[in-house]
Design a protein around this nucleic acid. Structure first.
Lengths: 150, 150
DNA sequence: TTTATATAGTTGTATGTACAACTATAACCT
DNA sequence: AGGTTATAGTTGTACATACAACTATATAAA
């Protein structure tokens, strides 16, 4: 016991390292399921989240930086992700007349239609992923995660 | 209330979607901190975890599949990660005589020395990352994450 | 008004992931 | 032994991330 106190740098057992590791393992588990889910729709999770941001704007076009701000991974290269969505005709992109530095990004009707198809199934996937936890446990988990990164 | 029950597919508010999203956000937060930490040592988190696996073998060489099994992201391309560590002279790689299909991967003395330097600082980083949670909360978080993916 | 600075977005490079196809060797089988 | 199957690892491709350098436009300042 005393030894443990004197050796706080033992990485293999320390509770903080273990917690961080558990978060990474959990994420990996979630991410793998997500990727294979979105593959059914020829999308990546990141492309999906761009579509979600655009749909939420209900017709009002977004600039690149506005889309960027709402993405989970801030460093992701939104330019190239959007270009891929343009190729798939799920979004459109045009230079704004009032400020030529900015671009106007809009989701197309086909994009909306795809999202509607996806969201229904995604709810099932996410519900299934959390099925091992009770409502109360889910609530606590969310609280703890929020507190962790606050 | 009734409406909410009738509309379980509303993705924006549903607790399951929110939980999955929170896990992804948390992971992103942890991952970003990790990456910038390991950058100080010219390593990626994945390269670090390979070194950790090799050190744990205490001199006994590992095959590629043995290293692979212990990594968080199973699909990562361990061959190429190891080749990068070989270039940095942190590990060695040789064909095994008893079975030419297998390779013997060993951590070098320099690799061990680097790990020792890193681990001390990594403990601080991980302790700092979890500083917003009490010991009890950390315990519960670990329990819930384990249950989630079980 | 021209110069400097800030803002918006794009592009390049190194790294890692996801997945499948591939080569080489070993083990099995008849 | 010779052919088949299984195992171990490598390589190719498409995609995404992390980060920095770059171009273009707008705003501010001298």
């Amino acid at each position: 016991m005393l030894l443990k106190k004197l050796a706080p740098t033992n990485t293999t057992t320390n509770i903080y390292n273990k917690t961080v590791s558990n978060i990474l393992v959990t994420n990996n588990w979630v991410t793998e399921k997500n990727i294979s889910f979105f593959k059914n729709y020829d999308l990546s999770p990141q492309q999906y989240s761009i579509l979600r941001v655009l749909k939420a704007r209900k017709g009002i076009p977004a600039s690149l930086s506005e889309v960027h701000q709402h993405m989970i991974s801030r460093m992701s290269n939104t330019t190239r992700l959007i270009d891929k969505l343009v190729i798939k005709e799920l979004v459109t992109k045009s230079v704004r007349k009032d400020n030529k530095r900015k671009i106007a990004i809009r989701i197309t009707r086909e994009g909306i239609r795809l999202l509607n198809r996806i969201d229904y199934k995604l709810n099932s996937l996410n519900e299934n992923m959390t099925k091992n936890l009770s409502s109360k446990e889910i609530f606590i988990l969310n609280e703890l995660l929020a507190k962790l990164i606050s």
